[in-house]
């Protein structure tokens, strides 16, 4: 909606409207956003305590640890993607709008990623420094997370849509979504490993980019179908 009060009915307008709304809501409840971020930081910090402080071991483990923590953090924040809208009836209104549902879903996913995925990307290099990663490793870690975390949000939207209002939904969503996250984990962490061993991360990053494009095309439709099933 623009200032004059008239409504922009185009697809782009609908997308922007959803993103702006979700970001506003997130800004009003900042604690929720920070919880995901702190969860990520704490999980990553737990590993040196459990394994021991040898830097050589930690450097080898760092890409995997950071990526697994990102997977878990992204999974934990999935519940927030649709459930508040589901409870207060907004979601039902969204299904009734003339704009295609996948576009609205894409807007919600994008807002969700800005709130819960992007902070992880920004803080990851700092955590990488704690693990004594070399500079090229830090760069590739941030880039792989930048390309990979939107895929996690997109795939997660399907799981979040399917488990909406289902009993035990929080645990169930992990069972549904984590197997589908595995390829992203393999190529994300693999890319950082490859960069550190001097092989170059281009192949891994290209595959992550391919996942992102594929998920951008398919996931909003699947998540839209899931929402319709959950709301009928």
């Amino acid at each position: 909606m623009n200032r004059a009060g008239s409504v922009d009915f185009s697809l782009w307008g609908a997308f922007r409207c959803i993103v702006a709304r979700d970001l506003t809501l997130a800004m009003r409840r900042r604690a929720d956003v920070l919880t995901t971020l702190f969860f990520f930081v704490i999980v990553v910090s737990l590993f040196p305590l459990g394994i021991g402080p040898e830097m050589a071991t930690l450097r080898i483990m760092a890409p995997g640890v950071v990526w697994v923590a990102a997977l878990l953090a992204s999974m934990l924040s999935l519940e927030r993607m649709f459930s508040a809208d589901y409870r207060d009836g907004t979601l039902e209104q969204m299904l009734l709008t003339p704009q295609p549902l996948p576009v609205l879903v894409l807007g919600k996913v994008f807002a969700h990623w800005l709130v819960s995925g992007l902070p992880l990307v920004l803080i990851a290099p700092l955590l990488g420094v704690q693990y004594d990663l070399p500079p090229e490793g830090l760069l590739i870690l941030a880039v792989s997370l930048l390309v990979g975390t939107p895929v996690l949000s997109l795939i997660g939207a399907i799981g979040a849509g399917l488990t909406l209002g289902v009993r035990g939904g929080g645990v169930l969503v992990s069972l549904l979504v984590l197997p589908l996250y595995i390829p992203v984990l393999i190529f994300g962490a693999g890319g950082v490993d490859a960069a550190m061993s001097g092989l170059g991360a281009q192949a891994h990053l290209s595959l992550l980019g391919a996942f992102l494009l594929g998920a951008l095309i398919l996931a909003p439709w699947a998540a839209g179908a899931a929402l319709r099933i959950s709301m009928e």
Partner: peptide, 9 residues
């Protein structure tokens, strides 16, 4: 719901 999941998998 499980049909959507099966197709995604």
């Amino acid at each position: 719901a499980s049909a959507v999941l099966a197709l995604v998998g």
